[in-house]
């Protein structure tokens, strides 16, 4: 077994194990952290395919941003786990049946005959000067220009919609317009009072 194969099998095993852990561990924070590990190992497998741009962006976007927000929410939530686990045994037969059907369907559609070295040969390794980033960029901005721009526009729309849906104007909010704060002058805040340094004290 070559070094590359050892690395591949090690990371794949870790990938499958951590992905299983995501849905089996009881603590949601642990589950989120296992998802982070899944993304990491997935990025490592992609690196083996010389897709370094996608691998690093996976870590950057999903691990660095999305999962941070996920953890943020999961840590803040105080979930009561007991009702979530109720009826596990009752629904188990149906769940297993559905799972078996899904596995069979997947085996029929993407069965082993579509894979293997005959169907998908090993891509020829590129030389050291090959830049995955450049290749992706030159395709994205030429052949796939419209889909790329449309996807960007849809994402912007989704961001605006999400903000518009959750934005609340609260009348009891006491925050001050920063522009007003900046325009404050000394005269509006400080008053110099002239008074005698000493004054006779009334002794009554």
């Amino acid at each position: 077994m070559s070094l590359e194969q050892i690395v591949f099998y090690a990371f794949s095993a870790l990938l499958v194990l951590s992905a299983t852990a995501v849905i089996t561990v009881r603590n949601p924070v642990h589950a989120a952290l296992f998802l982070v590990l899944t993304f990491f190992t997935c990025a490592a497998v992609w690196l083996l395919l010389e897709a370094e741009f996608l691998a690093i962006v996976l870590v950057l976007v999903y691990v660095g941003a999305v999962m941070v927000l996920f953890l943020f929410v999961v840590m803040m939530l105080d979930i009561n786990y007991v009702p979530l686990r109720e009826g596990f045994m009752r629904h188990l037969p149906l769940g297993i049946a559905v799972a078996v059907v899904v596995v069979l369907e997947m085996a029929l559609v993407v069965g082993p005959r579509y894979f293997g070295l005959e169907a998908v040969p090993v891509p020829p390794p590129h030389d050291a000067q090959y830049s995955n980033t450049t290749e992706l960029g030159s395709v994205l901005y030429t052949d796939y220009f419209y889909p790329f721009q449309i996807a960007g526009a849809v994402l912007v729309l989704a961001i605006v919609a999400a903000i518009a849906l959750t934005l609340r104007r609260r009348p009891d909010n006491k925050s001050i317009d920063p522009g007003l704060q900046m325009r404050v002058t000394r005269d509006q805040r400080v008053r110099l009072v002239k008074m005698k340094a000493e004054s006779p004290v009334d002794r009554e």
Binding site: V36, E52, I56, L60, V63, G64, A65, V68, N132
Partner: peptide, 19 residues
């Protein structure tokens, strides 16, 4: 080749220690 991206990815991961 992707040095700058690598740095961005790693600095974004460093928040996990704190969280």
């Amino acid at each position: 080749n992707a040095g700058l991206l690598y740095i961005l990815a790693l600095t974004s991961v460093s928040v996990y220690g704190i969280i």
